[in-house]
């Protein structure tokens, strides 16, 4: 199960506070692809636990397995072997339909290219994940309205994505990711398409969400963006390279200086 790379990581937080409940537990996850004759292990015996309220930056060079990890975390891909639990639910036990509903209910997605539906307006886009749930919670429209205001789009409820700037579109996507109050917010290079000022605003929004206790996993290859997160998980060759937790990381930075 554990290998040298994992051994170098510290599985428990260094801080004094008791660890919060686990949200996403991955144990011995392997994901293999077949590329022609060759078998590629995008993830190779990856084990890690993300806990409630944590804000992680997942970093690594391309080919390190971070995209594969994100797909598995987002339940759009299934591991070749190993166990993945979200809030205690073993994902492998869910069939395709259940998994779809599960994604909509438990996960919030934020993509690099926003990925709003062009023919829907702001409010409809925010409500998108709810529409595919079997039961629509009461007062969901009010919640969508609240979220739109929260991300600063209260005045543009009926604009189409084409009529919005990149930053505004990403705000819609963030509101959309929050509509079902998910266990996990997955952000894939969420600021990759934005200029630094707008990116900063988006990251501030993440900080706010973090402060509210949301669990955020932010995949990025930009060191500056990663530095904004509470913790950093570095991947290499399909497994963990380093784990930097908030407290020690500030220490490490101080050491470097």
């Amino acid at each position: 199960m554990s290998d040298s790379t994992l051994a170098s990581a510290k599985p428990q937080p260094a801080g004094g506070s008791a660890p919060s409940e686990p949200v996403a537990e991955l144990s011995d996850i392997t994901r293999m692809y077949r590329m022609g004759e060759e078998e590629v292990r995008a993830l190779d015996g990856f084990s890690f636990t993300f806990r409630k309220g944590e804000y992680w930056a997942i970093m690594g060079s391309s080919g390190s397995g971070k995209s594969t990890l994100l797909n598995i975390l987002g339940c759009v891909d299934r591991p070749s072997s190993g166990s993945y639990r979200v809030r205690g639910q073993e994902v492998a036990e869910l069939d395709d339909d259940e998994l779809s509903t599960f994604r909509g209910a438990e996960l919030g997605f934020i993509f690099q290219s926003y990925n709003l539906i062009p023919q829907l307006d702001v409010l409809e886009n925010i409500l998108m994940p709810v529409m595919y749930q079997d039961e629509v919670p009461e007062g969901i429209e009010d919640r969508a309205l609240e979220l739109a205001k929260r991300v600063g789009l209260g005045e543009r409820l009926h604009h189409r994505p084409m009529q919005l700037s990149g930053g505004q579109q990403q705000r819609v996507a963030i509101a959309r990711s929050l509509i079902n109050d998910p266990a996990l917010i997955l952000a894939d290079e969420a600021t990759g398409n934005l200029d630094s000022k707008t990116a900063d605003e988006i990251l501030e929004l993440f900080d706010e969400l973090h402060a509210e206790g949301k669990t955020i996993l932010l995949v990025t290859h930009e060191a500056e963006v990663g530095r904004r997160a509470e913790n950093i998980l570095r991947l290499k060759d399909g497994n963990i390279e380093t784990v930097e937790r908030g407290a020690e990381r500030t220490g490490a930075v101080a050491d470097a200086q």
Binding site: G74, V76, D96, D97, S100, T101, F102, R103, G104, A105, F109, F111, N115, I117, P118, M128, P129, Y132, Q133, R176
Partner: peptide, 16 residues
């Protein structure tokens, strides 16, 4: 295709 991917990620079942 991309829209389909988004919808699936956001919880759409195949039947949707």
């Amino acid at each position: 295709t991309r829209e389909i991917g988004i919808r699936r990620a956001l919880g759409a079942k195949r039947k949707h």
